[in-house]
Design a protein around this nucleic acid. Sequence first.
DNA 1: CGATTACTTGACACCGGTCAAAGCCGGTGG
DNA 2: CCACCGGCTTTGACCGGTGTCAAGTAATCG
Lengths: 243, 243
Amino acid sequence: MQNPLILKLDHLCGLEPADQARLDFGPGRTVAAHHDILADGSQVSHTSLLISGIACRYKMMGGGRRAIVGFLLPGDFTNLLFADRQKLDFGVAALTPCEVADVSCATLQALAGGSSQLARALWTSTQMEQAVQRAWLANISQCTGDKRMAHLLCEIFLRLQLAGLTHENGCEFPLTQSDLADATGLSKVHVNRTLQELRSAELIVLKGKSLTVPNLDRLMNAGLFNPNYLHMDHEGRHLDSNE
Amino acid sequence: MQNPLILKLDHLCGLEPADQARLDFGPGRTVAAHHDILADGSQVSHTSLLISGIACRYKMMGGGRRAIVGFLLPGDFTNLLFADRQKLDFGVAALTPCEVADVSCATLQALAGGSSQLARALWTSTQMEQAVQRAWLANISQCTGDKRMAHLLCEIFLRLQLAGLTHENGCEFPLTQSDLADATGLSKVHVNRTLQELRSAELIVLKGKSLTVPNLDRLMNAGLFNPNYLHMDHEGRHLDSNE
DNA sequence: CGATTACTTGACACCGGTCAAAGCCGGTGG
DNA sequence: CCACCGGCTTTGACCGGTGTCAAGTAATCG
């Protein structure tokens, strides 16, 4: 199985084989589900590359509430910093068992400094992350629960597709309703009601840890989802690749 | 009056005088209030530096609704891209009369390529933007109207302070309640009610186009605001400067 | 000084939060 | 193989925060 980071960056900008070789950070370590990959507010001098599993960036709010501000899929970095000892404004937690590779700032700097191609690819992936954040903001601030949920499911499904983690029109879906609640800003109870609406509208089939999307276009429609910001077309292929 | 971009980057990372000189992009053009600086969804090969005025990044939603996903203050770039012909997933509009300087991708690339110091400063400012986005997400998804508003006002006030645009404990505040509504995800009417609450709690004095914050700590408290993510201390000074 | 834009106020409805309790798993150990 | 258990999901009742509609008042600008 290929390094998901290479897959992603190559899709985004195209990568020389030499640059691809630089992106092998070895086997990595394992983090159990529900454990921190990066503690909230910690000062770190490294980043971690998610190799397998699903994680989230979160912020703890008053009253023990957790706000999920983004999901990490294989090929994503927890944080991309080039300066040492930055204090994080968020934490990163494994939502499923995860495999991660730690990369020091120095290594990252050397990578980016050594290849302008790579530097640009990393930059572009950051731009895409920002686009995702903007989409979340617009979505959460303006839409009712069902649209929010549909939008989120679209995004996750398409990003999984980009990472090669879907089959046909379905995928593994290990997130709990509690996770979805923290990500959408809805209560657990209301997430449940919302999912049932989507189910009864036959927009999704969500059971156990498996999600099927019978008709992606209809789900995108329900969530006012514009795939443009993921830099891809409807079929899960990246646009803008330099081929 | 000094170039606000130099002010910002120097605060964040420290800049050589030689690098500071590179950041002078000339006089710039004027954009009237309520006009686009960058049209939503347009394909551009340049970025624009905001020199004076206040602008916003926005996304148009169904039904003519506008979601504001971020504010731009003097010294901020509308978008930082290094590759040509990117299609934007958002627009940028002037909320007040604005002066902006257009900078081509090529110029930007030359700047970043010519000075690793500058490249790092630009990167760090992007990191901070992401931190702001995360704070917005957490805030909007988890808090009731009054807390959201308090949080937003804190952020704007502190960022204005960093840009040297406050006096004592007050500042010019040209944003309308309609703008605040689009940014907080509340309705115009509810923004009004919320502001009155904050006024009657004597957390803010907002009248005409002028905002006074009698006690910033109390306002931060009310908005669950942690200034950490702006990389500054309570007094409006930047932390982490390499002095 | 008229006209447009911004702000304010009140009444009412509804989305979604909260609380509480009951099913439904999947795993673990006897 | 079954009993048990903790986490996840589902349901129902109730209520509060916010959206919406509508009308009226202030501020701003040409």
